[in-house]
Each structure stands twice: as structure tokens, then as C-alpha cells.
């Protein structure tokens, strides 16, 4: 078998060569440096670093809050996509454009803005704090920030799939005697599920690595509201490169697993529906 099918188009060698060179230089080599560095640790030393209470608490918080934020977005993102695709309302174009705001707004801006809103004297905080709901400087604040930054993922993966669903599908189901709820749960939802899962995983992956928006609102109290990326920075500032590397490797492995999961979902859905998205 030849590596490449023959083609009359030129530029394959140049294009692929440059692609691989740049990929290695910018992405693969630095990641290799990280793995090499961590390889200088013995397994026990590595375990000792990542199993301290503070690290475990930070990892738990990072992944737990991300999971919650992604779930929240799976629900509301689906709802938003549904409403945007199927119901008319004034200002729809504007709302549709606004959904991408978290992609465009720098995370630091989101961070200080959310913090100010939920601080005890903020627009939201002044009503929430008297009720005993403290958002700013608590894990709840982390959840709010992560929900904000991962909001567009589910909407943007589910929306095109909902748009592509043919009305005939529902009309056929109605003719066969299905109720609205049956049509939704047995016809529409299964068709959208792979996209929803992809969006959920993307949101989760993005949330776990998030740093900029969280550090402002979290309060960064060790064991309570300190996330894993912040711990890495803390170790770096104390020139504890090995400690930082060990935590980074754990995070990296988890993000690889999620990348793999996304590919698996897409492979599964393309096999099931005979199409790739």
C-alpha cells in the first residue's frame, strides 16, 4: 500500500511537510517536554505529589464543578438550541449571535464581571447574600464561571442537527398516532443525542482547563475553592517545577481521555446514522 493516493494537484509535500513541522514545534515538542520532565520522577514520588489532600481536593473540585457546569449547559443549551431553531420571536438573530459571547469575550473580563455581580454589594449579590446564598468566593461561584465559559458548546453542536431534522419525520410520527411527548422522546431526542453528548464533552473539556474566569470569583481558598490549574501556577511560583509537572500530567491525561471520548461518540454516531458530523 502506498502512503498517499496519486493526485495531479501539486503541493502535497510542501503542505504536509510544513503542517507536521509546525505541529511538532508548537504542540508536540512542548508536550513531549512536559512528559519527559514528569518521567524524571519515580512512580512513588509522582504519586506522593498528586495524592496530597490539597491536590486531590483541587482535582475533585475542577472535575466536579466542570461536570456540573457541563450538565447544566446540556439542559439549558438544548433548550436554547430548540427555541432558536423552532420558535419565532423578535430579536432572534441578535440572541443567536449573542450565544457566542463566551467564545469572544476574554475570560479575565468574564471573571471580574461575574465576581462583581455576585459580590455582596453586586447586582445579584445584594439579593442573594441576604438569602444565605453565597456565590462569590465559593465553589458555587466556580460553577457560575464555568457555566458561562462553556455555554456555547452544546447550543452550537445541537443547533445544526435540529435544523437538519425534516418536518416529515414528525408528520409521519403524528400520522402513526404518536403524541408530542412520544415524538420528542422517541424520534427527535435520539436523533440529537450524539450531538448533545459531543457538546457536553466539549463543554466539560473546556471547563476543566479553565483558569482566567475562575480565579477571580473562586476566592482560591485551599481545600475549598482552589482549582487544579491554579495549583499548577502556585507550584510554578515557588519554582516547584516537578510538582507543577505532575499535576499537569494528570490533567493532560484526563483531557486526552476526553478527546478520545469525543472521537468515540462521533465514530459511534456516524456508524449509527451513516454520516459524519
Amino acid at each position: 500500500m502506498r502512503f498517499k493516493q496519486h493526485s495531479v494537484l501539486p503541493g502535497f509535500g510542501l503542505g504536509l511537510g510544513y503542517t507536521l513541522f509546525w505541529l511538532c514545534l508548537i504542540v508536540l515538542l512542548p508536550l513531549a517536554a512536559l512528559l519527559m520532565k514528569s518521567a524524571s520522577l519515580s512512580a512513588e514520588a509522582f504519586w506522593a505529589i498528586v495524592s496530597t489532600d490539597r491536590v486531590v481536593a483541587a482535582l475533585k473540585l475542577s472535575f466536579g464543578a466542570s461536570l456540573l457546569a457541563a450538565s447544566l449547559n446540556a439542559f439549558f443549551g438544548f433548550l436554547v438550541a430548540w427555541v432558536l431553531v423552532r420558535y419565532p420571536f423578535p430579536g432572534k438573530r441578535l440572541v443567536d449571535a449573542l450565544v457566542d459571547l463566551p467564545f469572544a469575550l476574554p475570560t479575565a473580563v468574564a471573571g471580574i464581571s461575574l465576581t462583581t455581580l455576585y459580590a455582596p454589594n453586586g447586582w445579584f449579590g445584594q439579593y442573594l447574600v441576604p438569602l444565605g446564598i453565597n456565590v462569590a468566593f465559593t465553589p458555587l461561584g466556580i460553577l457560575v464561571a464555568l457555566t458561562f465559559i462553556s455555554l456555547p458548546f452544546v447550543v452550537r453542536t445541537v443547533q445544526p442537527v435540529l435544523e437538519d431534522l425534516e418536518a416529515e419525520l414528525e408528520e409521519a410520527a403524528t400520522c402513526l398516532g404518536a403524541t408530542r411527548w412520544q415524538i420528542f422522546s422517541r424520534v427527535l431526542f435520539p436523533a440529537v443525542l450524539p450531538a448533545l453528548l459531543t457538546g457536553f464533552t466539549l463543554a466539560f473539556a473546556r471547563a476543566t482547563g479553565e483558569f482566567g474566569s475562575v480565579i477571580f470569583i473562586a476566592g482560591n481558598i485551599p481545600m475549598v475553592s482552589e482549582i487544579a490549574p491554579l495549583l499548577i501556577i502556585g507550584k510554578l511560583e515557588q519554582f516547584d517545577f516537578l510538582g507543577a509537572t505532575a499535576i499537569a500530567v494528570v490533567m493532560l491525561v484526563i483531557s486526552f481521555v476526553m478527546l478520545f471520548a469525543i472521537n468515540l461518540i462521533q465514530w459511534w454516531s456516524s456508524r449509527r446514522h451513516g454520516m459524519t458530523r
Binding site: T19, L23, V27, L28, L29, P30, L31, A33, L34, K37, A205, R206, T208, G209, E210, F211, G212, P229, L230, I232, I233, L236, F241, A244, T245, A248, M251, L252, S255, F256, M258, L259, N263
Partner: peptide
């Protein structure tokens, strides 16, 4: 190759920064 190109999306920016410090 496509997966590798997508890789930076799933790496935490802080981890990315760290890799450059290590390099």
C-alpha cells in the same frame, strides 16, 4: 493528524504555558 491539530483545544491553557516554561 486532524486529532493532533485539535489537541490544543483540549489542553488547559495553564498546562500549555507550563510546557513552554519547561522548554
Amino acid at each position: 493528524l486532524i486529532t493532533l491539530i485539535d489537541l490544543p483545544f483540549s489542553v488547559s491553557p495553564v498546562v500549555a504555558g507550563l510546557t513552554y516554561v519547561l522548554m
